[in-house]
Amino acid sequence: MIADKIKRLREASHLTQTELAKKLNITRSSVNAWEMGISVPSTTYLIELALLFHVSTDFLLGLEQNNTIDISTLSEREAILVYELVDYFTSQKKDVVD
């Protein structure tokens, strides 16, 4: 559900509902309504949320299960380290399942 994803992303970013609302120039009650599933963000706010949290709008809408990470500002060595960490975590999950 989009409500759960917004809340998880907000909390992972260490933002309160009020802080997220200020970043989006909306009321805290609007953010609360999204997280409670009472309403859903408009297309404009979906895009803003995706940009803010570095995820795709498809991810927010539940159309894709993959997260993306923007590594465009990292050096080549830093990007390699990120890929190595992903490979490591993926292999650890496979070991647990096997």
Rank of each mutant, 00 (worst) to 15 (best):
96 V>S: 05
5 K>C: 05
41 P>Y: 03
93 K>S: 12
74 L>H: 12
42 S>F: 05
95 D>H: 02
40 V>C: 02
40 V>G: 00
17 Q>D: 06
91 S>D: 11
2 I>G: 11
64 E>Y: 01
43 T>F: 05
71 I>G: 13
23 K>H: 13
6 I>N: 05
88 Y>C: 09
31 V>G: 02
29 S>D: 14
97 V>H: 04
57 T>I: 13
36 M>S: 13
36 M>H: 05
34 W>N: 00
89 F>V: 07
26 I>L: 10
18 T>G: 04
51 L>P: 01
14 H>D: 15
23 K>G: 08
26 I>A: 03
6 I>V: 15
90 T>F: 00
24 L>F: 07
35 E>F: 12
28 R>N: 05
91 S>M: 07
72 S>G: 12
72 S>L: 14
82 V>I: 14
59 F>E: 09
52 L>S: 04
59 F>L: 10
37 G>L: 14
28 R>P: 07
14 H>N: 15
9 L>V: 03
32 N>K: 11
29 S>M: 09
32 N>W: 06
25 N>W: 04
8 R>A: 14
18 T>D: 13
4 D>K: 12
55 V>C: 00
69 I>Y: 13
33 A>E: 14
59 F>H: 10
81 L>M: 15
34 W>Q: 06
81 L>W: 10
12 A>V: 03
11 E>C: 01
13 S>E: 08
23 K>L: 13
40 V>Y: 01
75 S>W: 06
55 V>I: 08
9 L>C: 06
89 F>C: 10
49 L>M: 09
53 F>S: 00
77 R>Q: 11
21 A>N: 09
70 D>R: 15
58 D>W: 00
85 L>W: 15
2 I>T: 13
41 P>G: 02
91 S>W: 03
34 W>A: 01
84 E>I: 00
83 Y>G: 10
